[in-house]
């Protein structure tokens, strides 16, 4: 048995090396993608590029469209998502109801985004007559981010200690008062994380946006207008590449998206770390 030790150790070392190599390779790929895009894109990030309403020069229309889509979809998805999470975590007793809701939410989470696009096109663009517009896209995306909002809000609610609920109810408050005044405020950092994750999803999404919001390059006058989000703009810049500086612009647009993702990641990280620290003293 002892004789095996050396062989075993060599084998272990080989496996260890391959694991470390895989990890390093993945990180390298990540670093490379970011560096490759940002190095070529950063010089293009001028004030003119960000603020010009002329799509040949800048991306202001796309920024605006993206912001509109984010805001409208959050306005729709947040209340529904948070209420659903509260219901699931604070009220629901009937196991059949709970199971049904969870099944629906999990299935929604698994549906590929292009299917949401088909649905939105059919229902919001055609059936409701919104046509390709920001509102149609935002409504579509709001359903898509519902699972994200629900599950992360629920996670936040789960971290609120039972003693808060008991403490409040023992003071003769009603359940809804307890939820509004104690539970939701305590879960707020987690809910903010949910919101930020949802924003990230909406900004990064492309296929359903292409089908429902469209590709109009002008500054949208209202949410009933068609528009072009940053992601779709990036796609069309590379697809059509009519303007001379199309690729330069594409790199700059991709840089904006990457920087945005990095910021979102940093915020959620800090939030959840602070939250753990703070709640750690209570639980």
């Amino acid at each position: 048995m002892r004789g095996n030790v050396k062989i075993r150790r060599n084998k272990d070392r080989a496996v260890y090396t391959s694991m470390a190599a895989a990890t390093i390779l993945i990180l390298t790929v990540l670093g490379f993608i970011i560096a490759y895009v940002v190095i070529q894109g950063a010089p293009g990030l001028t004030w003119e590029f960000l603020s010009s309403s002329d799509w040949r020069v800048g991306i202001w229309p796309m920024l605006l469209t993206t912001i509109y889509v984010v805001i409208v979809s959050l306005i729709v998805a947040l209340p529904i998502g948070i209420i659903t999470a509260v219901y699931l975590n604070e009220y629901a007793k009937n196991p059949r109801v709970i199971r049904g809701l969870r099944l629906a939410i999990e299935t929604l989470a698994g549906i590929p985004s292009i299917i949401y696009g088909l649905f939105g096109l059919l229902v919001f663009c055609r059936f409701f007559g919104f046509g390709q517009s920001i509102i149609a896209g935002a409504l579509t995306l709001s359903i898509m981010i519902l699972p994200v909002v629900i599950t992360s809000t629920e996670e936040a609610l789960k971290t609120v200690p039972m003693s808060f609920r008991e403490g409040s109810l023992a003071l003769g408050t009603t359940k809804i008062q307890t939820i509004r005044k104690v539970i939701l405020p305590s879960a707020m950092p987690g809910i903010i994380t949910a919101v930020i994750l949802a924003i990230g999803r909406v900004v990064g999404e492309s296929a359903p946006v292409l089908l429902t919001v469209g590709i109009a390059k002008n500054v949208p006058r209202s949410i009933m207008d068609s528009g072009r989000t940053l992601t779709i703009h990036l796609y069309y810049l590379t697809k059509e590449a009519v303007e001379e500086n199309a690729f330069q612009q594409a790199f700059a647009t991709a840089t904006i998206l990457i920087v945005f993702v990095i910021i979102i990641n940093m915020i959620t990280r800090t939030l959840s770390r602070n939250y753990e620290k703070r709640m750690g003293s209570v639980i």
Partner: peptide
């Protein structure tokens, strides 16, 4: 009124 085993002030 009720006071619990562990102090549970609200945040």
């Amino acid at each position: 009124g009720m006071v619990f085993q562990k102090p549970n002030p609200f945040p």
